[in-house]
Simulated assay, not measured.
Amino acid sequence: MFVTLHAWRVPGCAVPRALVRMAVDRRRLRAIPGVRFAKLLGTGTGDGFGPTDADPTRYAALLVWDDHAAAGGFDGSPVARAWQRIATGHVRIDLRPLASRGRWSGVAPFGEPRGTAEGTVLALTRARLRPRKAVTFWRAVPPVAAAVADTPGVLARFGIGEAPIGWQGTVSVWRNTADLVEFAYRHPEHRAALLRTPAEGWYAEDLFARFAVLEVIGDRRVVGWGDGGERGRA
């Protein structure tokens, strides 16, 4: 299994066209040969999950492929070409699943991988909130988001969303697995949120996955990572 995460930055004047692409490209994305699972996503700051935290100038796509060869055809697809026409920046992050727990739209898109990685890792969380629990969840987010921002091991982070409210998640890139685990299970703010989750019953569906970052192609600054660069190993 091979996974790619794409992100595009568009200028303000192209936001209306990007919103049209969000409406029409979801099915086209899933129809690309070799795609097993696909999500077209809006993005946000990562500091919260309300509409005010959305970033209307950045969009993302997460794709699970049959193999690396199938993923190589994405840039020539109608979906990719449409986004390239309106984007001022694009980055592709190639990923290998290491661990995954939970479901997304009723399926386990990354299977049940078990692996380790020596270098850079990416963590993805997503959840569909129970409407009656949304307010308490949103109140719990800012301390955790602030803690992530102040953690030395995090290289980049941003929010993702399938809908303006209630269908959100996060992407974070970490220097290594040890830094990610240290934050996830030992940082007091995040640990407190983990302990609250079963009692609060915030989620109707949720997923957490961890990936080895294999390669980064394009402008890393689109996702707030480093100084840019066209191509490189993580």
Rank of each mutant, 00 (worst) to 15 (best):
residue 89 G to Y: 05
residue 69 A to M: 13
residue 18 A to H: 07
residue 201 G to Q: 09
residue 214 L to K: 12
residue 76 G to C: 08
residue 227 D to I: 11
residue 23 A to N: 10
residue 60 A to H: 02
residue 71 A to P: 04
residue 211 F to I: 01
residue 185 Y to G: 00
residue 220 R to A: 15
residue 38 A to D: 01
residue 85 R to P: 12
residue 162 E to C: 01
residue 80 A to Q: 00
residue 39 K to I: 11
residue 9 R to Y: 06
residue 36 R to S: 13
residue 71 A to S: 11
residue 170 T to L: 02
residue 84 Q to N: 15
residue 148 V to D: 11
residue 55 D to Q: 09
residue 226 G to P: 11
residue 24 V to Q: 02
residue 170 T to D: 04
residue 228 G to T: 03
residue 234 A to V: 05
residue 34 G to R: 03
residue 12 G to P: 07
residue 127 A to P: 07
residue 60 A to M: 00
residue 98 L to Y: 10
residue 7 A to Y: 07
residue 14 A to M: 15
residue 170 T to Q: 04
residue 78 P to S: 10
residue 227 D to S: 15
residue 128 R to F: 02
residue 5 L to Q: 00
residue 188 P to M: 02
residue 159 G to Y: 02
residue 222 V to C: 06
residue 91 V to I: 08
residue 195 L to H: 08
residue 28 R to D: 03
residue 201 G to S: 10
residue 198 P to H: 11
residue 97 P to K: 10
residue 229 G to I: 02
residue 148 V to R: 07
residue 83 W to H: 13
residue 66 D to H: 12
residue 111 G to A: 11
residue 166 G to W: 02
residue 160 I to M: 06
residue 210 R to S: 11
residue 193 A to P: 04
residue 92 R to Q: 02
residue 157 R to H: 07
residue 89 G to Q: 03
residue 40 L to K: 05
residue 172 S to V: 15
residue 161 G to M: 12
residue 232 G to F: 11
residue 192 A to P: 02
residue 199 A to I: 07
residue 120 T to I: 11
residue 154 V to A: 12
residue 51 P to I: 01
residue 156 A to V: 08
residue 88 T to A: 10
residue 126 R to H: 08
residue 219 D to V: 01
residue 117 A to H: 12
residue 177 T to D: 09
residue 60 A to C: 05
residue 110 F to T: 03
residue 220 R to H: 04
residue 71 A to N: 03
residue 124 L to R: 14
residue 111 G to M: 03
residue 197 T to G: 01
residue 34 G to H: 06
residue 18 A to P: 00
residue 70 A to S: 09
residue 72 G to R: 02
residue 170 T to C: 07
residue 91 V to G: 12
residue 34 G to M: 06
residue 83 W to E: 10
residue 140 A to S: 08
residue 133 K to H: 10
residue 36 R to A: 14
residue 47 D to S: 13
residue 221 R to D: 08
residue 128 R to P: 02
residue 178 A to G: 13
residue 174 W to D: 05
residue 215 E to A: 14
residue 41 L to V: 04
residue 186 R to M: 15
residue 163 A to M: 10
residue 112 E to K: 12
residue 9 R to G: 07
residue 155 L to W: 13
residue 207 L to A: 03
residue 119 G to Y: 12
residue 154 V to M: 04
residue 158 F to A: 03
residue 215 E to S: 14
residue 92 R to M: 13
residue 63 L to N: 14
residue 18 A to G: 00
residue 185 Y to A: 06
residue 10 V to E: 00
residue 173 V to C: 13
residue 98 L to D: 14
residue 100 S to N: 07
residue 165 I to R: 04
residue 49 F to G: 14
residue 33 P to F: 04
residue 69 A to S: 13
residue 24 V to P: 04
residue 52 T to A: 15
residue 83 W to V: 05
residue 115 G to C: 14
residue 67 D to T: 05
residue 163 A to P: 05
residue 150 D to T: 05
residue 173 V to L: 15
residue 174 W to E: 05
residue 20 V to H: 15
residue 42 G to N: 05
residue 204 A to G: 08
residue 60 A to Q: 02
residue 226 G to H: 01
residue 45 T to E: 06
residue 123 A to P: 13
residue 72 G to C: 09
residue 8 W to R: 02
residue 168 Q to S: 14
residue 192 A to Y: 12
residue 110 F to Y: 07
residue 8 W to Q: 00
residue 118 E to M: 12
